[in-house]
Design a protein around this nucleic acid. Structure first.
Lengths: 209, 209
DNA sequence: GCATTTATAGATCATATGATCAATAAGGGA
DNA sequence: TCCCTTATTGATCATATGATCTATAAATGC
């Protein structure tokens, strides 16, 4: 086996010994995020150290175990991925629902359609990390559920989607990032047109003007 | 680290020594598919052997290396996932396009919304296996591309989707399986209603009656 | 029942891997 | 410039892991 360690060499060949602890710690976390995104959470600490240009033992000076390091990676990646004013902005009925949805998915897609996020989210999901389920449940309750009512209110005919319909809208959009970063398929540089189309088709189906 | 080996014990505690080589080989492949789907392609041969109720060395009697075994797993999983009469059935204009689409995704979803397929497809995709890209390119060319013309022909107004729109339809449907088997989120037992909704919204947007 | 074949097991090897710890030297303060 | 703190290294440990090889015993044919 032995997965080929995409050895991008040291990130900064100049950086040498004796950084301030906080700086070094941050450097390790940043490097670990990039590294584990590349090779998966079973990437070897020696390979990560080589990439950082430090010794493997140094990692254990900053993190008590590899699991502990991965925890820090999770925190770094999952933190603030979903800014908490979106529930308010999505339900601000002074603006057309279409604009609100376009704004949300424009910002959200730039946040999540990133190599590190996409891949670490998927790796941790496959590994059964609780963080995934919690994140998606959070997304469902603070974003999708409020949207049920918004669409119902904005519909000319009062037709309302079910929760599963909203997951379908969401999934269709997220799948762009999956194709791009997980499957490494050729994808449009700018996904906003595809996203706009998906949103318009969805609103159209529920008679939102 | 040391991922918890979901040790479901031996699959068949009765099965004992000296099977016919072909039978044993098949048993190993079947067990390996289930095992790697659970723990990922970096699962350890000793854990797989334990699950099968055989010794680890026996695996290497049937497969020259772990990579070789994984190749067999890929073949077993990827083979005939997309039956090749679908291009014809999808373009059979004697039937309503909606029926053709519903039929396709009904059958396709039962094929792919399975634990082993979903997870091994994702694991191999993350590992950069060429098989993934080829599979998706195949799907794009023999299923989605023909659908472009079908929708255009069936549209009252002649409006045609782009390729990216079809990936959006497809992705929204596939995402059900991702939520279920990768993220292990609660999902509807029967996805056909959600699929039907997605297809109808899509056709509706392109003025297909 | 016996001999032969060979599927399977058990012991073992070489290396990889997470983790530890004492030794070293970089950098700041006097 | 020297000293002292401590960030960093290098050697090392215990175990895990893919792979190999010989011994064993289950099935098959006579």
């Amino acid at each position: 086996m032995e997965r080929p360690v995409s050895a991008a060499a040291t990130t900064d060949p100049v950086s040498r010994r004796r950084l301030q602890p906080e700086e070094r710690r941050q450097q390790i976390i940043d490097g670990a995020v990039a590294f584990f995104a590349d090779v998966g959470l079973e990437g070897k600490t020696r390979d990560l150290a080589k990439r950082l240009g430090v010794t493997q033992s140094l990692l254990f000076n900053y993190f008590s175990s590899k699991d502990n390091l991965i925890e820090a990676v999770y925190e770094h990646v999952y933190l603030n991925r979903l800014s908490d004013d979106w529930p308010r902005r999505l339900t601000d009925r002074t603006r057309p629902l279409r604009d609100r949805l376009l704004d949300f998915y424009a910002e959200y897609s730039t946040l999540i359609f990133q190599y590190e996020w996409m891949r670490i989210f998927m790796f941790s999901g496959l590994a059964g990390a609780e963080l995934n389920r919690r994140y998606l449940e959070h997304l469902g309750s603070v974003i999708l559920t409020p949207l049920l009512a918004e669409i119902g209110a904005a519909s000319r005919t009062g037709s309302r989607p079910g929760m599963e319909d909203l997951w379908n809208l969401h999934g269709g959009i997220v799948y762009i990032g999956i194709r791009q970063h997980i499957y490494r398929m050729p994808c449009p540089d700018d996904p906003s047109e595809a996203i706009e189309g998906a949103i318009d088709r969805f609103l159209h189906a529920f008679d939102v003007v």
